[in-house]
Amino acid sequence: MAEASDDRPLLQLAGVHLHFGGLVVLNGISLDLQRGELLALIGPNGAGKTSVLNCISLLYRPTQGRIVFEGEDLAGLSPHGVARRGIARTFQLGGLFPHLTVLQNLLVGRHAHFSSNVVLDGVFWGRARANEIAQRAAAEEIIEFFELERHRGELVSKLPFGVQKIVGFARALAMEPRLLLLDEPSAGLNREAREDLSRFILRIKHEKGIGMIWVEHDMQMVADLADRIYVMDYGAHIADGEPRQILADPRVVEIYLGSKGN
C-alpha cells in the first residue's frame, strides 16, 4: 500500500508485556519485521510464542508496549480490524470451520473482499451475485496454489489432519495479507507434508513477498527456510539473528537440550 515509506519495518513490537494476573506471559518483547521477511519464532513449550501471535492479532491485549503495523499503532483496533489491515494468521489446531467445505472456508477468508450487504445477499441480486462469482474465481487461485483441487467440495471435518492444516494456511493466504502469522504449521504433519509446506512457504515469500512470523519446532525446517530466527524462553527475548549463528549459540542449545553439566 504505502510504497513511499517502504524502508520502514512492516511490523514493530516495542517492549510488549502480557500479564494474566500475576503470571508474566510476555516480558518485554521487541522485534522488527521487514517486508517480505521470514522470521522464525522458536523456543520451548510455554515460552510465549503463540502469545506473541495472539498479541499481534489482538486476541490478547498487551498489558504494556506498542505494536505498530505499517506505521499504525494497533492498540485502538478490534481483532477483525487488524485482519482487515492486512494481518492474517493460522491456528495450531487448524481452527477451521468443520461444517463448511474447503471452498467455503476459503471464501470466509475472503470475507473482507466482498462488497455486498445482507439485503442484497438475501435477494441474491446485483453485487451479491457478482461478488460470489468474482470471489469464487479468487478462491480458485488459492486452491490451485495449494493444490487443493480434489478437496474443494469436501467438508473440512472429513479431511485428514495434514490437509486441514494446509486448508488453514490457504484460508489465511486467501485474505491477501501483507503479514502472515503461522502458528506451528508443521505440527502433526509427516515428512512429505512438511516438504509440501516448505515449498508453499518459500513460494509465498518469493512470489508474493508477504512478511511472515513463523512459530516452529522443526529446527531443520527453520534452519533451511528462515531469514532470521528469534528465540524466546519464559516470555523473554534470548537471542535473534541468522539461522546458522543462532542454532550454534550456546544459550539456544542449552534451552533446547539442557546444559552440559547434566
Binding site: 492479532s57 486476541l59 478490534s78 481483532p79 477483525h80 487488524v82 485482519a83 482487515r84 492474517a88 494468521r89 491456528f91 481452527g95 477451521l96 470451520f97 468443520p98 461444517h99 463448511l100 467455503q104 471464501l107 470466509v108 477468508g109 470475507h111 473482507a112 466482498f114 455486498s116 445482507v118 445477499d121 438475501g122 435477494v123 441474491f124 451479491a128 461478488n131 460470489e132 470471489q135 484460508r171 485474505m175
Partner: peptide, 30 residues
Amino acid sequence: FCINLLRTRTGRALMAIRDHDIVAESLGIP
C-alpha cells in the same frame, strides 16, 4: 431469502461464527 442468505457471504459468516467465533473474528468478520 434464507437460502440466498446462506449461500452468500452473510451466511458463511454466520456459520463461521457458530463453528469458531474467535477464528471468525481474526479472519476479518465483525
